[in-house]
Design a protein around this nucleic acid. Sequence first.
DNA 1: GTCCACTACTCCGTGATACCGTGTAGTGGT
DNA 2: ACCACTACACGGTATCACGGAGTAGTGGAC
Lengths: 108, 108
Amino acid sequence: MDDLTEMLKGTLEGCVLQIIGSEETYGYAITRRLNELGFADVVEGTIYTILLRLERNGLVQVTKRPSGLGPPRKFFALNDAGREELATFWAKWEYLSSRIDKLKEGGR
Amino acid sequence: MDDLTEMLKGTLEGCVLQIIGSEETYGYAITRRLNELGFADVVEGTIYTILLRLERNGLVQVTKRPSGLGPPRKFFALNDAGREELATFWAKWEYLSSRIDKLKEGGR
DNA sequence: GTCCACTACTCCGTGATACCGTGTAGTGGT
DNA sequence: ACCACTACACGGTATCACGGAGTAGTGGAC
């Protein structure tokens, strides 16, 4: 699938929130997970900027743990604000995707 | 629904293409149509920049016609390149929305 | 007959976001 | 010693939707 960059704007952050919400994890693993899920072109740099933003916005709780396999990992977990943000994201996604699907169906 | 701005990136242009593809129309009417369809906060300025971009990228055929109700209207219709771009857009949308829905369902 | 509302188009600057390339580090295998 | 893989960080770039302001044309209210 060719370039999805623009379409990912606004949704990729939500995807990261969802992944963090389902289990405490770290940047490198999140990137691999997204790649597996079909977001093939997403690279680490992108995920790290998103994680830094989540941290800055107070949506996650961060814990640094040694890895035994490379440098220490920064584990991310959602806090209450993060869970709320995730719910908002899904509400927006439902809203948007329903409108667009309607438009596709001939949309009157 | 609160701010969808970021989520619309990359999709709004496709929506405009779809509307133009279903009937030859002009900027002001496209904006009203989108508002009706639930894209409530989309404003004229946004649509005009998209229309200028479509024109610049050679995806539309433009015809100016007098209105009898205000200034003349610029009618837009898809050309072959535009129809191709529209098909690409829907393919991307299908791809992306299926991945995201899968992620939402617990996505492993 | 002057003001206002509605239609219709244009331009410019702003902010948010994903991407890219590069760099730094730690561990383990050959 | 070198290389591959893991893991994080940073700085610059392009794209896009938005906001605001401006310009025009028509017709109705008073």
